[in-house]
Structure formats: structure tokens, C-alpha cells
Nucleic acid binder design. Structure first.
Length: 359
DNA sequence: GACCCGTGGGA
DNA sequence: TTCCCAAGGGT
């Protein structure tokens, strides 16, 4: 078959050919993608979107991507940006180490004159791992790369009915993914696999009757598509308690900057009683303040749940907090502070309670 | 390999 | 409501 020269290992592109044909008709239109027939988007946009998309849905990323490329159109602009502004612009998107690595990566790329065009070169940059380096090499630079994300893991484990459980199955998945990845259009192939996983080969209720690969799919032949991938049982998440402090004075609230590493690292925040340090908080309010309870915020993190008791102090007097460093942030510009969702919830609760410090 | 690290949407 | 889980990387 003519197309056999386009593939690496897999006989005749039996997967790639129908998948790419499907992609040519059904590719999702996404802000970071080139329109059909256009050249590949520039590496900056590919990199930015791929970092934002790490463990994050396309719907959540779209508005953030638009704001970032509008405000920082090139990697040089982002490299020159104020760190606090970038962190604030990332607020709400989660996994804040990505934002810290984004800045570091932009500066490294800008100072070296541009993005590396190989997987190996990309892989050395902060925040770019195995998946992202392969994705950028394939999508932005047209190189053959084996791109494996959660979608590809699911599609491949179904195509080949891989019985081994994740994460041990990743070795077999990589071998299989390598075999079906074509030399040409491997960037389109990767995006096609991801689109298929997002729209057809979904975790639950896969739409096999619409799938261009169903005739090649062992799991479909077994009528067991939903049984793959096999996952290890997950542990139960513990529940923690903590306090957060809403200290207001003359229409401003006292905000702190969290340490660069750990939970919500590098983000602006309300002061707390230490709940993020791996256990419940101390449960005690800072000395020198007239504190009263102001409601409870419940928030789920990846590996624990949090019941956050909000404490209010309306007279703006709390010497022990003042001593620790922070800033009075105007309440009428609170949306610009870039609070992570947990503290944005707490702030909303406090403001609904009418504690604006003006009374 | 295990664990840490956010958030929101769908079922 | 509750559970699942997503275009993963760093340590």
C-alpha cells in the first residue's frame, strides 16, 4: 500500500489513515489551532496552550488563552512581564506551579532566541515534560513524536484491549502508540487521537457506532470498550479543617503572598492558620484582633477536602498579622488580586456578609 | 513508582 | 449530592 511509507511499524497505516480522514472532517475548532489548510501556529501559542491544557479542559482554558495572547502576544512579551501579573492572570486555572514554570520557561526561551525544535531540547525547559515536549515537537515543528496523554492512553488501551492496570500499563501503551503513529502529520495524528478521545472514545458512554476506528478496535469487538483503561483503585481523600482571616480597614482587605512552593504557591491569599502544611490548621486566630466567625467554605482539592472557617475582623486592627508582611488591597479592585478559587469563595462569602470595612 | 499539586463540568 | 477525571510535571 502506498501509505505504508508514511508509517513507522504499523502495517499500512491501518489506524492513522482512517483517523486522519476523520480528523479532516471533524477536527474541533480551538483557539490555539490553525484553521484547516493554514500553516502550523507559532510555537509560542502551541506551548502556551499545551501548558494550560495540562490536566485542564479545553473549555476552562479557552478564556485564559485568549487573555494571555492578547496581553502577551509573544514569548518575549511574557518573558518581560511582571511575575505578579502573570500569577494573577493564571488565578482560577489551578496547578499554580505551571504559572511559575511558565515564566521561567519564557525567560529561558527568550534569552536563547527561540523555542528548541526537538523533543530533547524542549524537554529540558521548566514545565515541559514527556507529553508536552512531544506535543510541541509534533504540532509546532512537524516532527514525528509519540504523543501520549490521558486521551491517547484511553484510545490505545481500548484499541488493543490492554488488560494491565494503569500506571503499569503505560509501557505497553507507549509501544502500541509508537506503532500506530505515522511519520507524516504526526501532530495532526496526536490531535486527532485527543479529539477522538474527547468526543467519541469518552471515559464513560463511548459512542462506538460513530468511531472511525471501531473495525480496528479490540475492545469494541469484545463489547467491552468501557472496561478500558483498567485503573488502580484510588484512595479516599482525607478531610481537613482550617481558618482564613478577613481583616478589613477603610475599604481594603489584608492579603498575603503565599510561599513559592507548596499549596497555591506564589499566589495572593487570605492569611490562614496553617491548614495547608499537611494537616489541620492550629484553629487559633492571630493575637490582637477582634475576631468573629463569618461562615464556612468547603473546597475540594485533589488529595484532600477542606472545611475552611472564615474569621472576620472589621476594625482593621491585628498587630500580629501586620507584622508578617502583606498588603492592603482595595475591595473595589479585589477581582484584580488574582485570588485562587478557594480564597475567591471566602472573599465572596465575606462580602455577602456585608463586611466591607466601611461601617 | 508514589505522592503532591486545582478546578470545574458532566453524569 | 457525590463521584469521576481532564492535552501532566516535579520531586
Amino acid at each position: 500500500m502506498q501509505a505504508s511509507t508514511d508509517t513507522a511499524g504499523e502495517a499500512g497505516g491501518a489506524i492513522a489513515i482512517p483517523l486522519l480522514a476523520w480528523y479532516d472532517r471533524h477536527a474541533r475548532r480551538l483557539p490555539w489551532r490553525a484553521s484547516p489548510g493554514e500553516p502550523a501556529p507559532d510555537p509560542y501559542r502551541v506551548w502556551l496552550s499545551e501548558v494550560m491544557l495540562q490536566q485542564t479542559t479545553t473549555a476552562a482554558v479557552a478564556p485564559y488563552f485568549a487573555r494571555f495572547v492578547d496581553r502577551w502576544p509573544t514569548v518575549g512579551d511574557l518573558a518581560a512581564a511582571d511575575e505578579a501579573e502573570v500569577m494573577a492572570a493564571w488565578a482560577g486555572l489551578g496547578y499554580y506551579s505551571r504559572a511559575r514554570n511558565l515564566i521561567a520557561c519564557a525567560r529561558a526561551v527568550a534569552s536563547s532566541g527561540g523555542f528548541p525544535d526537538t523533543e530533547e531540547g524542549l524537554r529540558r525547559l521548566p514545565g515541559i515534560g514527556e507529553y508536552t515536549s512531544a506535543a510541541i515537537a509534533a504540532i509546532a515543528f512537524g516532527q514525528r513524536a509519540v504523543v501520549i496523554d490521558a486521551n491517547v492512553e484511553r484510545v490505545v488501551s481500548r484499541l488493543f484491549a490492554i488488560d494491565e492496570a494503569l500506571p503499569a500499563a503505560r509501557k505497553a501503551i507507549r509501544v502500541a502508540a509508537d506503532e500506530i503513529t505515522p511519520a507524516d502529520r504526526s501532530g495532526d495524528f496526536a490531535q486527532a487521537m485527543m479529539d477522538l478521545g474527547a468526543t467519541i472514545c469518552t471515559p464513560r458512554g463511548p459512542r462506538c457506532l460513530l468511531c472511525p476506528l471501531r473495525q480496528k478496535c479490540l475492545a469494541f469487538a469484545l463489547d467491552r470498550a468501557e472496561d478500558f483503561p483498567v485503573r488502580a483503585p484510588k484512595r479516599t481523600v482525607p478531610q481537613r479543617r482550617g481558618l482564613a482571616f478577613w481583616l478589613v480597614r477603610e475599604g481594603a482587605v489584608w492579603l498575603v503572598r503565599r510561599p513559592a512552593k507548596g499549596m497555591l504557591g506564589g499566589m495572593r491569599a487570605l492569611p490562614d492558620d496553617g491548614w495547608s502544611a499537611g494537616a489541620d490548621g492550629s484553629g487559633t486566630a492571630p493575637q490582637g484582633g477582634n475576631w468573629k466567625p463569618g461562615g464556612i467554605v468547603r473546597h475540594g482539592f485533589t488529595h484532600f477536602g477542606l472545611e475552611l472557617q472564615l474569621m472576620l475582623c472589621e476594625d482593621g486592627v491585628c498587630a500580629s498579622l501586620d507584622d508578617e508582611g502583606g498588603e492592603w488591597w482595595p475591595l473595589d479592585r479585589l477581582d484584580e488580586a488574582g485570588l485562587p478559587t478557594l480564597f475567591a469563595k471566602a472573599a465572596r462569602l465575606a462580602l455577602e456578609a456585608g463586611t466591607d470595612g466601611r461601617e
